[in-house]
Design a protein around this nucleic acid. Structure first.
Lengths: 151, 151
DNA sequence: TGCGACTTAGTCGTGCACAACTCATTAGGG
DNA sequence: CCCTAATGAGTTGTGCACGACTAAGTCGCA
C-alpha cells in the first residue's frame, strides 16, 4: 500500500483531501447552511443578510460602496437589492448630485429587523464551536489568504 | 468616537468585519476566482474540477458516493455530471447489480486531462502564499468548523 | 464648449446550490 | 410472497455569482 494514511499531505497533490481549497469551499457552504434556518425566520438569504449587516452599520450607502464592502459585482447585487426592496426592507433612490449613483436607504421595517437579528451572531458563534483564539486565528488566516489570492 | 478601531471584536457583534462567516465567504469566492483562469484552460468550472479530482482518485464511483465526498446534493450533481458527460470527460451507466445506482467512469479524454491538471495545485498553493504551517492550521480549523457546524 | 474616456447600475446568459418533489428500484417485515 | 418503507438519481423553481455587455451620466481637456 503505497498511499497509506500516515503520509504527510503533498504540496502538489491532486487528492481532494489534501486541498485547502476544498476545506474552504466545504466550510463556507456548511456555515451558510447553518445560517439558513435562522435567516428563514427573518425572511433573508445569507447574502441578503450580509447586505443588511452593511446597511445597519452604514445607512444610505451606494451600490458601488456596498459592492466594495462585500466584494460583489453589481450584476449580483442589483437583482438581490431589488428583492430586498420588494420585501420592503430598503429603498433605492438615484442621488441628486450624481445621477449615476444609487443610494440604498433602510425602511423602518429594515431598521427594525436589526433587533430580531441580534441573536444570530451568538447562535452561529456557538454552533461554530471554536475558542476565541481559534476564531481569531481562522479569521486572520482567511484574510491573509484573501489578500494574497486577490493580489 | 465610541467604536474606534482599537477595540477588540465582539462575540455577538453585527459588524461585518467582526464576522468569521464573512471572512470565510469572501475567501472561498476569492480562491474560486483565482482558479478560474487556470480551469478555463482545462474547460472546467471549479465544482467540475472537484468532481474530476474525486474521479481521478477513484474511478467508477456512484453519484451517491461522489455526493458524500463533496457534500453536494444529487440535484446539484446531476446537471453538472450531464455537462461533464456531454463534454466527453465521463460516462454514466446504471449499475447492473442495482439499477437505482449510476456509475461514473472516466473516458480516455477525462483520464488524460489529469496530466494537464497536474500543475494547478502548485500554482494555487503558490498564489495562496501561506507557509506550510499556516496551510495546515487553516485546513485543520476549517475541518473542525465544518464538523462542528454540520453536527 | 464639445467630445471622447471613464464611471455607475443594470440586463442577460451560464452554471452552481439547495429545498421540495417525482419516479424507479430495492430491501425487509409480516 | 406481497407490500410498504427506504433508497438513488433526477427534475423543477428560486436565488446567488460572475463575465460580457449596455445605457446613462460625469469628467477632463483639446
Amino acid at each position: 500500500m503505497s498511499t497509506a494514511g500516515a503520509e504527510p499531505p503533498q504540496e502538489g497533490s491532486l487528492l481532494l483531501d489534501d486541498q485547502l481549497c476544498f476545506a474552504l469551499y466545504a466550510a463556507s457552504r456548511a456555515v451558510t447552511a447553518r445560517y439558513r434556518p435562522l435567516l428563514d425566520e427573518l425572511g433573508l438569504t445569507y447574502p441578503q443578510y450580509l447586505v443588511m449587516l452593511v446597511l445597519w452599520e452604514q445607512d444610505s450607502i451606494s451600490v458601488r460602496d456596498l459592492g466594495n464592502a462585500l466584494q460583489l459585482e453589481s450584476s449580483t447585487l442589483s437583482p438581490l437589492l431589488k428583492r430586498l426592496e420588494s420585501n420592503g426592507l430598503l429603498r433605492r433612490e438615484r442621488r441628486a448630485e450624481d445621477e449615476r449613483s444609487v443610494a440604498l436607504r433602510l425602511t423602518d421595517a429594515g431598521a427594525r429587523l436589526r433587533e430580531r437579528a441580534g441573536t444570530v451572531p451568538l447562535a452561529i458563534g456557538d454552533a461554530m464551536g471554536l475558542t476565541p483564539e481559534q476564531n481569531a486565528v481562522a479569521k486572520q488566516l482567511l484574510r491573509l489568504l484573501t489578500t494574497n489570492v486577490t493580489r
